[in-house]
Design a protein around this nucleic acid. Structure first.
Lengths: 349, 349
DNA sequence: GACACTGTATGGAACGATTCACTGGCGGTC
DNA sequence: GACCGCCAGTGAATCGTTCCATACAGTGTC
């Protein structure tokens, strides 16, 4: 069907198969004259390397697997973009899998990637996959956790300090005069969700005046979950509502924003402040521009891939945890209640 | 390093290598007894197929390439999600590439996918890649164009009727009393952009009262482009501004929305209406909920992959064009100017 | 009992690139 | 002039699977 093989190139260039392979892989070891002839033959015949044969014999793979928790979340598409940038500069392709917080899908993709013998795996984990990853590592496929701190240090990871982020977010809310704060998010199996809540609690405990932290649990962290949670909050008698919401991520925050409208009147920020997490591009464009904790998403992807490649180069490298700090971005959704409306609001710090 | 091969499984199960292969690929042809023994051996040894060897010998690949124009756009992430769903039900993995409207990247990914000998390629094309795709086809790798009608019928395609969509959008604007309409988008090398504008013109020509269509060109179709275009429109004297904007997609529309605020007062929808295209999840959550033309994005991905698989099964299939119709979703951003503010607005038709 | 046929299982040749031990040629050195 | 070392290039073995031709046992038929 296809059919230009290295043998055809060799014949055309008047050299041996081995020489063509050398031109492809170690051009320095071949005389300039031969390189030239071989390259011309490749050009003329339209030869393309067969990666399967290459992988089989040489054992090196040109793909990296990336298993993503929520492919719809702009935060993750940004992370993937960063990884992709780094990958393409090394001539690697990305095998992509979106688990959508489904343990079975997660396992399926890891199986698939193992069959493919990818060079390594980047993963924002959902279920408990440590043993699965250990097995991959035993077979020479390293893994780097993305957007998740590896508590036991068994794997390298690239993440953002969610505890610090949660603390900063709630400190900001407190600074803006809020006292009854609800954390909206879930499920609590996800570490970031737990961490952001933990950070929020730290901020509340450190506050000079008493601050209340309530938890409004959601099933997942999508816009729809936010809308539902918002409706539940709205259903309560007015005096019983929190005066600020800290959403586990921007999707939930945007959902909350949508829900918090009574008789055509937007409760945010006057009655209720909202702050999200991730600072996705849409946060700034929301009904009420959304305050958020910005994560260096592209950088996370780039860094993760870079570490992965280092580990493929030297499998005995000690796993290391890379942690970025999030950055508070203040917009109108957390304006102090007294202040009228307007005030466009830029970035803080 | 790794090292459990089919041979080891065979030995352990007390059968030949060929039989193990048969269990793996045609279990029906093997006695239940052997199947059982082989499966147990596979389990015990933790054997995983080597896809490289498989691909080399059998020539069949378990990956499909997907080249996406704009991986950040939620519309495309939805399309990818649809393709992924369909792929995973066939035990295929997706090799993912985001071109970001860069011809060089597009070419790079096609090269990479050819080396990988993917089963087929899904692509939302940017540059002129017909000859490149023809070559892939000649090598047994079919391609299906996604979100792009194949005008000359050389390839199968799955797309949405953008001309009809453009027409419907502008008819809606006209119906809402708008007369001076600006189309905001670009670049015009992208077919959808051209088509949506063409549809807009058709609607204007068919209108009973005279309707003006102006073009505000943008470099690309991101939120930032929308913001910039909005600023330019705002810079004009008030009487010289259009009374409605039809954005090439929702990202641009959201950008416009952000820009169209004067002294803290939102001009949309009273002075200027906005309608977008794609109905991404964030359109509903925007500052002013955005009217848009909904595309069945997931379905597009699913369908494209399905067609691709049909073509791999029978390469002589005649290319076919699948076209979906977009659906008008009316929200507040296109409310009639007379009507005060509020009115949440549901879906139309 | 010869023969055909069916259902299983086998063993080895292929797939195409890489790699490595080796050859041949050439120049330099003693 | 014998020898060594070096460089460029060669060609066969190899990676792990699939698949095909073949073997063999068992059953049914005449």
């Amino acid at each position: 069907m296809a059919g230009v093989r290295i043998r055809d190139v060799a014949q055309r260039a008047g050299v041996s198969v081995g020489t063509v392979s050398n031109v492809l892989n170690r051009p320095g070891d071949v005389s300039p004259d031969s390189v030239e002839r071989v390259n011309r033959a490749i050009e003329q015949l339209g030869y393309v390397r067969n990666d399967a044969a290459r992988k089989l014999r040489a054992g090196v793979s040109t793909t990296v697997g990336f298993v993503v928790l929520d492919g719809q979340n702009p935060f993750f598409t940004d992370v993937v973009r960063g990884a992709e940038d780094e990958a393409s500069s090394h001539n690697l392709a990305i095998l992509y899998g979106n688990t959508d917080e489904d343990v079975a899908r997660e396992r399926m993709y890891l199986d698939l990637f193992e069959e493919q013998q990818v060079r390594g795996v980047l993963i924002s984990p959902y279920g408990d996959i440590h043993s699965r990853l250990e097995r991959l590592r035993a077979r020479g496929i390293p893994a780097v956790l993305v957007d998740r701190f590896s508590g036991d240090g068994r794997f390298s990871s690239v993440s953002v300090d969610s505890v610090a982020g949660g603390r900063m977010a709630v400190e900001h809310l407190i600074g803006a005069g809020r006292r009854r704060i609800a954390f909206v998010g879930g499920p609590f199996e996800i570490q970031q969700v737990r961490d952001r809540l933990a950070g929020a609690r730290v901020a509340a405990e450190n506050a000079v005046s008493p601050v209340e932290i309530e938890v409004v649990a959601t099933e997942a962290t999508t816009v729809a979950d936010g809308v539902a949670a918002g409706a539940r909050i709205l259903a309560r008698p007015r005096g019983d509502r929190p005066d600020a919401l800290f959403a586990a991520n921007d999707l939930v925050a945007l959902g909350l924003l949508q829900a918090l409208v009574v008789d055509g009147r937007m409760l945010v920020p006057d009655e209720i402040a909202i702050i999200g997490f991730d600072d996705i591009p849409f946060a700034a464009a929301a009904a009420v521009p959304l305050s958020s904790m910005r994560q260096p998403s592209r950088m996370i992807g780039r860094t993760a891939l870079r570490i992965l490649l280092e580990e493929t180069a030297d499998p005995d490298l000690i796993p290391r945890q890379t942690v970025f700090l999030p950055e508070l971005v203040v917009r109108r959704s957390t304006a102090a209640p007294a202040v009228s409306a307007a005030a466009p609001g830029g970035r803080a710090r």
